[in-house]
Amino acid sequence: MAEPFKMALPSLMQHLGVLEDSSLVRSEKVGRVRTYKLTQETMRVGEDWFVRQRTLWERRLNQLDSYLLEMKEKENGKD
């Protein structure tokens, strides 16, 4: 199971445990087989948060870009 990720199985299981603790995945064990599934609602909440953060940072970076362009124009006007 861990081979495609180039990590040891205990490390992969630890990562899956963190994802399960944060409700991003849930697992079900039947016999010796444990199946993991994404938790859609939690993933949706996370996606919404990322969209809000991206929007915020895009606005801030656009403001910084405008400010720097303004400063450059002022500096070029002094020459």
Rank of each mutant, 00 (worst) to 15 (best):
L64G: 00
E28P: 05
K72V: 13
L19N: 01
R34T: 07
E28L: 11
R52H: 06
E20K: 10
K29C: 12
V45L: 13
L56F: 10
D21M: 06
S66C: 09
S22Q: 08
S66Q: 14
T42Q: 14
M13K: 14
E73P: 03
F5P: 01
Q53L: 14
F5W: 08
Q63I: 03
T55M: 06
Q40H: 13
T35M: 03
F50H: 11
D21S: 09
T42H: 02
V30Y: 07
V45K: 12
G77K: 09
Q63F: 02
R60H: 04
L56R: 09
K78H: 04
V51L: 12
V33H: 11
V33A: 07
N76C: 04
L12K: 00
V33K: 15
H15C: 07
L24Y: 03
E28Y: 09
N62P: 00
D65S: 11
K74G: 03
T39N: 15
L9F: 04
M7R: 04
L9M: 10
M1D: 01
K29D: 00
S23Y: 02
Q40R: 14
V30W: 04
D65E: 15
L38Q: 08
E58D: 15
R44E: 15
T35L: 04
V33G: 00
D79S: 12
E70T: 15
R34A: 00
T35Q: 12
G77L: 11
R60V: 14
Q14L: 05
L61F: 11
E58L: 08
L64I: 15
R32S: 10
N76R: 12
K6F: 05
L19V: 01
W57T: 10
R32F: 07
L19Y: 06
D79Y: 05
Q14M: 05
G46M: 09
Q14V: 02
K74S: 10
K37Q: 12
E70Y: 13
V25Y: 07
E75L: 08
M71Q: 14
G17I: 05
G31I: 03
N62R: 04
E20G: 01
R60T: 12
R59W: 03
